[in-house]
């Protein structure tokens, strides 16, 4: 099997662990419109990768290709060595929008993954209860999504995505719809859960601060169409981190300046094209 050729501008700290997600020369297009072209990405097992880029640069498209929701026009995506063909269920996906089933209670939503995998009722109920408690929603088991706040719904979604112990966690601007305080809270929560059991994470965001605060590595995408990877920055900040405090760190601000100088040009280009 052809191994992904990874163009790394810098040596990453966790290069020793095996690659979990390989995106190899992937081009995504919709008819004549080419969203992303020739993208190479590798995410090591246990690595938290964040992808930033201007609006409309096809960030979500890449994520959907990894999830198997969309098929690349060319190139291959593989997870843990196996090529992705169609939707697979060893990944956890955190959507930007409300993705909970509105006709199921918080508990029923969380136990969906185990249910679809054929786990017995008692066991999955027990696991779902544990996971709800883990995300701080003990006592909210029987609430329907419309009876929960935006942040609480996000917590349920987290539990829902993580309960089956996925190999890879994909996140598509998961916190962008939340207010700033809830967002900080959720980011810390996410880091705490991830710290417990490190998985490969690919997170898409347009918030550079979030990208640096959470990630091990930040990848910058060019303005679309025909977007591609233009830079990759390792984030050598120690963990565990507190997202609010880390922003005051000198190294954080230096990194922010570096990445922003790379990103700014693309954001400006994207505005010119969209005006």
């Amino acid at each position: 099997m052809a191994l992904a050729i990874v163009k790394e501008t810098t040596v990453q700290p966790r290069s020793a662990s095996k690659p979990m997600v390989c995106v190899d020369a992937v081009t995504m297009s919709f008819g004549d419109f080419v969203a992303v072209e020739n993208v190479d990405l590798t995410v090591a097992d246990g690595e938290f990768l964040t992808i930033v880029g201007p609006t409309g640069c096809g960030k979500s498209t890449i994520l959907n290709a990894v999830a198997g929701l969309l098929k690349p026009a060319s190139g291959t995506v593989s997870i843990d060595g196996a090529p992705v063909r169609g939707v697979r269920n060893d990944i956890g996906y955190l959507f930007q929008q409300d993705a909970l089933l509105p006709w199921k209670t918080a508990l029923e939503n969380v136990e969906l993954g185990p249910l679809f995998k054929g786990m017995g009722a008692a066991e999955r109920r027990e696991r779902a209860t544990t996971w709800l408690a883990k995300v701080g929603l003990k006592g909210f088991e029987d609430r329907y999504p419309h009876q929960l706040s935006g942040g609480q719904r996000k917590r349920v979604q987290m539990a829902q995505a993580l309960i089956s112990g996925p190999k890879v966690i994909l996140m598509d601007e998961p916190f962008s719809a939340l207010d700033i305080h809830t967002r900080h809270l959720m980011q810390n929560e996410l880091l705490r859960l991830w710290q417990e059991e490190r998985r490969a994470v690919v997170m898409i965001t347009h918030d550079l601060e979030e990208a640096i605060a959470l990630g091990d590595r930040v990848v910058v995408l060019a303005a679309g169409p025909r977007s591609r990877v233009i830079d990759s920055f390792p984030v050598a900040l120690e963990r565990p981190r507190d997202v609010a405090e880390i922003k005051l760190d000198q190294r954080f601000t230096d990194l922010y300046r570096n990445i922003w100088s790379s990103l700014r040009g693309e954001v400006e280009k994207s505005y010119e094209r969209h005006d």
């Binding site: 929701l69 269920n89 996906y93 959507f95 993705a99 969906l112 993954g113 829902q160 089956s164």
Partner: peptide, 16 residues
Amino acid sequence: PVVLANARLLGASRPD
């Protein structure tokens, strides 16, 4: 469509 995609990613079969 988001709810649908979510259910599929969680491993729902067609009858599910």
